[in-house]
Nucleic acid binder design. Structure first.
Lengths: 202, 202
DNA sequence: TCTGAAACTGACCGATTGGTCAAACCATCC
DNA sequence: GGATGGTTTGACCAATCGGTCAGTTTCAGA
């Protein structure tokens, strides 16, 4: 099922992937079952396997492209822009991903916890290259005195950690904040802006 | 198997829990199998179930007490100490937990990703209370002008996110840093100290 | 309206799941 | 050497797992 050709294929493929995202992101690859995905999708199990060759294929379809989407905000950081503004923009876009695509974030987190068996190559290739490129930009900004000097790679780690936390540990965040504050993201956005501004302004 | 009475019970219970931690932390509750735990432990499956009533019981034994250990560093933050030093000490102790108990961290992360079905009560009770208590201390420090003013609860979230990232996303961290830097933790410690010092010093 | 392909399903497969149980094993104390 | 109670296991169970397949239903185009 590489390229959907009919409207039905289009619709059902999307339905299946949506259901699979729900289940995989919550239980990981091994903890998820085809029966459960089928039930969420409202389709029969053999029908799932009419559209995707195997459980692995569904999971693979979800993962492929996820890393790219995940790295887009970093890629968009402009080497010619204002350093602090560029990094704050990156943080904001990354936090928006956590808010708008929490299941994708948890799918990614699950893959990490399992030791990244299916995307390790991409981590050591695409991801690593992009981080090196962007940390070189950050280092240059620091050398020019336009950004406070910190370890650039760990700076990028800190963006990932702080933003993904609000998606992956959503339950904990909401449990601590209580029902009073229904949506943690506005306050999180303000907090992260203060944090990175104070950290990075020279 | 509440209280081990003989030396054999002591030893085997520990062996089982150690093996179970390895498996649960990697695959989550549903993704883990008793056969796999038994194999890692070097015991037969019926023997596991001689010491623990069920798969749930093993998982429960691991989770109970974990939250307490996880919160100890926060609990140790002294309201009468120096604000910045106290918070930096908290960060350091929390990072040491990530370094020394990465599997426990991942077990916790797995539970969060699944929506915390087994420790939700503790999150909304014990955890929430401690965070409120400590964020009141932080708020007082800020009011006294001894700490830069930021949202105290999100400040605590940031400590959790930044420290746990090095345990939960260990694969990613090492993939990006490459083989050159074998142990990311020393540099991470220095980075986090700079980050929180710059964020919090008035 | 007919037809061929696409879409779908119930029944089923062998393997694996969590868990049980009777029987055997083994260390210790009399 | 026996008796005893803690320990271990092979064989087994029903349920569920990912996946197959023959056959039926549905749909689009002529």
């Amino acid at each position: 099922m590489t390229r959907p050709r009919t409207r039905i294929q289009q619709r059902n493929s999307e339905t299946i992937l949506k259901a699979a995202l729900e289940v995989f992101s919550q239980h990981g690859f091994r903890g998820a079952t085809l029966d459960q995905i089928a039930e969420v999708a409202g389709l029969s199990k053999p029908n799932l396997l009419y559209y995707f060759a195997s459980k692995e294929a569904i999971h693979g379809a979800l993962l492929s492209g996820l890393l790219a989407t995940w790295l887009d905000p970093l890629r968009a950081m402009d080497p010619d822009g204002d350093p602090v503004a560029e990094l704050l923009g990156y943080v904001r876009r990354k936090l928006e991903l956590s808010r708008d695509f929490p299941r994708e974030s948890r799918l990614f987190a699950n893959e990490m916890l399992q030791g990244a068996p299916r995307i390790r190559a991409a981590l050591e290739g695409e991801l690593r290259d992009l981080v090196r490129e962007k940390s070189a930009v950050l280092q240059r900004w620091m050398d020019e005195g336009r950004l406070a000097p910190v370890h650039p790679v760990h700076l990028i780690f800190s963006v990932w950690a702080l933003t993904q936390h609000y998606a992956d540990f959503d339950v904990q965040v909401r449990a601590v904040l209580g029902e009073a504050e229904t949506d943690p993201f506005p306050e999180a956005g303000r907090f992260l802006e203060v944090l990175f501004r104070r950290l990075l302004e020279p």
